[in-house]
């Protein structure tokens, strides 16, 4: 299977091809999904090296399940998000058990120094506020507002109804608005 000819091939077909030994199919699937998986892990965990581990583990589980993948059972992207979310939840629980307080890292970008400092402060504050949320709310917020999934997609990943998703995100948003509101001025939001 040539790498360049895969744009019209579905994830499911590629995964089954990989299950039969087609390594090019795995490269295409990596190209399509690894970035999103990694970014979701980063959004939830706020730590690059943990996100790397989770992303690699999630993709490894996909490779392992490929020979047994049944057509029409689930979307590959949804399945990957489910696995990634579960792996992130496990890590968050371990962190809390151990009492680890992870300071979220911020990626560097091509912005001027002032904007960069302000942006860095905002993102650090948001990460800390996200860290205070219950796990399910954090997961729902990350999937919906950081990874850009729709409410039905979030429901599919988390195994809950759309109404449950809306309830989780609504409560999470309220909590974040209150937590971050105390630092409104330093985050660069003026009084109305």
């Amino acid at each position: 299977m040539a790498f360049d000819d895969q744009s019209d091939v579905s994830d499911e077909v590629l995964l089954r091809a990989y299950g039969r030994g087609d390594r090019v199919a795995a490269r295409v699937l990596t190209e399509r999904h690894a970035q999103r998986v990694w970014r979701h892990a980063r959004h939830v965990l706020g730590d690059a090296s943990e996100a790397d581990d989770v992303a690699q583990e999630a993709m490894l589980r996909l490779w392992k399940i490929a020979p047994e993948w049944r057509a029409g059972e689930a979307k590959v992207s949804t399945w990957l998000f489910q696995v990634t979310s579960n792996l992130c939840t496990d890590r968050l629980r371990k962190r809390r058990e151990v009492g680890l307080d992870v300071v979220a890292e911020q990626p560097s970008g091509d912005v001027d120094a002032v904007t960069s400092l302000e942006q860095s402060a905002r993102l650090t504050a948001l990460n800390r506020a996200l860290d205070e949320l219950p796990e399910r709310q954090r997961q729902a917020i990350a999937l919906r507002h950081l990874d850009g999934l729709s409410n039905p997609e979030v429901g599919e990943v988390m195994g809950i109804s759309i109404e449950a998703v809306e309830s989780l995100t609504s409560r999470a948003r309220r909590m974040l608005r209150e937590t971050l509101g105390k630092r409104k001025a330093e985050l660069g939001f003026g009084d109305v």
Binding site: R39, H43, P107, R122, L123, L126, N127, H145, L146, L180
Partner: peptide, 14 residues
């Protein structure tokens, strides 16, 4: 304002 923060974080994902 909260949505603006989400957009910033999403864009800075790397």
């Amino acid at each position: 304002e909260l949505d603006a923060l989400f957009r910033d974080m999403s864009a800075a994902g790397g």
